[in-house]
């Protein structure tokens, strides 16, 4: 695959998935704490989302950052717009802005950063995952 093909593939993933998370590892086997907390926040919202592991090829990450202008992983896109990385997603989770951006109700339990959630306990109802 050429770099351009990788970039086109990433752009397609963003275009075709309303909620698109690029992460290290997968939601059920995250390979980095930042990716784990970000996918756990999405899991807690109960939305369907697509997730792509950027680790298999270094160029995926390079092309993604070139595309988004954002240097780190994870990166969450909603409606084709970069929302941010772990810090922003967790701040938005706590403030209720994430629910608003996703168009869902804020979970009724006391909102808290889903940091304590172990990766293996993450609820998975993802029918739209790419990897």
């Amino acid at each position: 695959m050429t770099d351009q093909e990788i970039r086109d593939f990433l752009q397609n993933a963003i275009n075709e998935n309303r909620v698109m998370l690029f992460m290290k590892g997968t939601p059920d086997a995250p390979r980095c704490g930042f990716s784990m907390r970000t996918s756990a926040a999405l899991n807690a919202m109960g939305v369907q989302y697509a997730a792509m592991d950027i680790l298999p090829d270094q160029r995926i990450r390079e092309e993604l950052s070139a595309l988004s202008g954002w240097p780190t992983i994870p990166q969450l896109f909603i409606d084709q717009k970069l929302v941010g990385g772990c810090d922003i997603v967790l701040e938005m989770y706590e403030s209720g802005e994430l629910a608003e951006a996703l168009g869902v109700e804020q979970p009724t339990e006391e909102p808290q950063a889903p940091e304590a959630e172990a990766p293996e306990s993450a609820p998975l109802g993802l029918e739209n995952r790419l990897s």
């Binding site: 202008g69 240097p71 780190t72 941010g84």
Partner: peptide, 14 residues
């Protein structure tokens, strides 16, 4: 918020 973070990331570039 994303612009604020990008401003800080921009200081360190690559």
């Amino acid at each position: 918020r994303i612009e604020q973070h990008q401003l800080v990331y921009g200081i360190f570039g690559d």
